[in-house]
């Protein structure tokens, strides 16, 4: 259990294509940080470099006060949970969990004690004598977690641990992981491509794209105030309005319309959630009002989703309040200043 610092990590296999570029992360003692991103963004590579399974081209990894950048994997004192569980097929549950302790040459009594303890914490006591092939996916993942926790690792690394489980089990297991991590005050890194999963259990989230961290923040901050176009798209924003300038009061869009929003440097786009666009009866003098025509309508259960063609481009609008509107109807939309977020590229 310790603070983990990743400084200016770079990774490249051939010197030209950078898989990671100048990546830095700082994880406090006892924090669970998720690395979120689409496949190929470098999140697993980052985790594998931290674990020591891959060697970085450049950069440093510091655990506590110790620089472990060049320490071989078997000396790093980490626990790791793999997507494929990676249990040792020839060993019983007990011996799978005991493996790391045996490598550390603990005496039999201590091993027995520690393994029994961690098996009971993870709810596996009854399965100690079974072999991996005799366990369900969820049970295997618990064993994998127990094996990682038993050595009381400096940092717990989780590489998409839930993606092989079915939906219900996934929710159960992520709560279990969070509970154990908090009980044991474990520093943990959780790699995933599922935003709901990572928002649910993380203290902080690093959203990655193309080998860089786009935003490193609390889940709330990322959800409410994405900083870049990529992050906004990734967490489900759908309306993006390109802007070309700022005149001190409002942004100027490509289509020469002025939109007021919070001033921020390097703003390239404005975004707003579909349910935050209001359909209003009459155009008032207030800011950020635009006319449009409905070109498509979809029923979403608790609301209607309208696709509206406006001079700002096509906007998606979710409406819960009004009567059902039909295609080709003209509407007036209000994009409230407080809901319109500026985004960097």
């Amino acid at each position: 259990m310790a603070k983990l610092e990743v400084k200016n990590l770079s990774m490249s296999y051939d010197g030209k294509n950078k898989i990671l570029e100048d990546l830095s992360l700082s994880i406090q003692d006892g924090e669970l940080v998720s690395i979120l991103g689409p496949s190929g963004c470098g999140k697993t590579t980052t985790l594998r470099i931290i674990a020591g399974l891959l060697k970085q081209t450049d950069g440093e990894i510091i655990v506590g006060e110790k620089n472990i950048s060049n320490l071989p994997v078997h000396k790093r004192e980490f626990g790791m949970v793999f997507q494929s569980y990676a249990l040792f097929p020839h060993l019983s549950v007990f011996n799978n969990v005991a493996f790391g302790l045996k490598m550390r040459k603990l005496d039999k009594k201590q091993i027995q004690e520690k393994v029994e303890n961690v098996l009971s914490v993870t709810g596996l006591s009854d399965l100690a004598k079974r072999f991996p092939a005799e366990l369900s996916g969820g049970q295997q993942q618990r064993v994998s977690l127990a094996r990682a926790l038993v050595i009381n690792p400096q940092v717990l690394l989780l590489d998409e641990p839930l993606s092989n489980l079915d939906a219900k089990l996934r929710v159960e297991m992520r709560e279990e992981i969070r509970r154990l991590q908090q009980e044991l005050k474990m520093t943990a890194i959780f790699v995933t491509h599922d935003q709901e999963e990572c928002f649910a259990i993380s203290d902080k989230v690093a959203v990655m794209n193309r080998g860089r961290v786009e935003q490193f923040d609390t889940p709330q901050a990322i959800y409410q105030e994405p900083k870049t176009l990529f992050v906004a798209k990734f967490i489900g924003f759908e309306n993006f309005i390109k802007v070309v300038g700022y005149d001190g009061e409002a942004y100027l869009t490509e289509s020469n319309i002025k939109l007021a929003a919070q001033a921020k440097e390097n703003t390239r786009y404005l975004t707003i959630r579909p349910r935050q666009i209001k359909i209003i009866e009459t155009a008032n003098d207030s800011e950020n009002v635009v006319k449009g025509r409905i070109i498509n309508r979809t029923y979403l259960g608790n609301s209607y989703r309208y696709t509206v063609k406006t001079s700002l481009g096509v906007l998606k609008v979710d409406d819960f309040e009004h009567d059902v509107l039909s295609r080709d109807e003209d509407v007036i939309l209000e994009l409230a200043v407080k809901n319109l977020l500026p985004l960097e590229n």
């Binding site: 994997v73 990676a86 493996f99 550390r104 094996r147």
Partner: peptide, 8 residues
């Protein structure tokens, strides 16, 4: 890899 991480 799991074995290496475990200290092998």
């Amino acid at each position: 890899e799991a074995a290496w991480v475990s200290g092998c």
